[in-house]
Write a protein that binds this DNA or RNA. Structure first.
Length: 223
DNA sequence: CACCAGGCAAGTA
DNA sequence: TACTTGCATGGT
């Protein structure tokens, strides 16, 4: 009935995925603020389209909190158009830039010197920053040991019966944080590997045969 | 043609 | 509290 302890299982999953895929080099951004912009643009959007929205921002040298804060919303929306949801995302980018400028004088160094739990609460107050975006920013731009939960994490780990379908975001996050070493590079790589795994093996039709975790799924299903 | 993508906020009951 | 819906482009 009970498999090996969760602590070991979660590390086994990580090792298998890393062995199969290798390092993912997340987050692909040239600066912390570009990473933050990407985190907003990628909400329910493929990374391919996010890149297309980031290019005009990069080429126009708009990727600082102050520049985005000062950019008219309609103009910002046009620049990021290929990323989809461009009107809401323009609002969200502006809200985030405004937060950084007004609360931290436009300095991400100062922002990330704030204690992680407090900064997380502050980020969640910003319209357009939800749990996943906040945690992505903390982990990938702030290098804080925070585990990012997404739809793929749910899909994969519930399939393996390691979490419940009804588990909420904080439930799932607690499970990972409680059972893994609090090490930012590990959390960084783990989340990236989960996304990569889902992209390749869990699309419309799951391919558990070819998945590096496929054999683990069979073991779990034996109960 | 349908369906999905590295979510979130606002509205409804 | 627990669902639902709008947001929008681009790839498969």
């Amino acid at each position: 009935m009970n498999g090996p302890p969760l602590k070991r299982t979660l590390l086994t999953f990580y090792k298998e995925l890393f062995r199969h895929f290798g390092p993912q080099h997340w987050w692909p951004a040239e600066s912390p603020f570009e990473m933050i912009a990407g985190a907003i643009l990628t909400q329910n959007t493929s990374w391919k389209n996010v890149e297309k929205g980031l290019i005009p921002l990069r080429e126009g040298n708009y990727l600082t909190p102050r520049r985005v804060f000062e950019l008219p919303e309609s103009q910002l929306a046009e620049l990021i158009r290929p990323a989809g949801f461009f009107n809401v995302k323009a609002k969200r980018l502006k809200a985030m830039a405004r937060f950084i400028v007004e609360q931290y004088g436009g300095s991400l160094t100062r922002m990330f010197s704030t204690k992680t739990p407090l900064l997380r609460e502050q980020l969640l107050e910003v319209k357009g920053i939800g749990p996943e975006t906040a945690d992505s920013i903390l982990l990938y731009a702030g290098n804080a040991p925070v585990f990012v939960v997404d739809a793929y994490t749910r899909r994969i780990f519930s399939r393996h019966h390691l979490i419940q379908e009804t588990d909420t975001y904080p439930d799932i996050q607690r499970i990972f944080i409680r059972h893994l070493p609090h090490h930012a590079p590990l959390f960084n790589e783990y989340h990236a590997l989960i996304v990569q795994t889902a992209k390749v093996y869990c699309k419309t039709k799951p391919n558990c045969q070819a998945c590096p975790l496929g054999y683990l799924l069979e073991l779990e299903d034996v109960h």
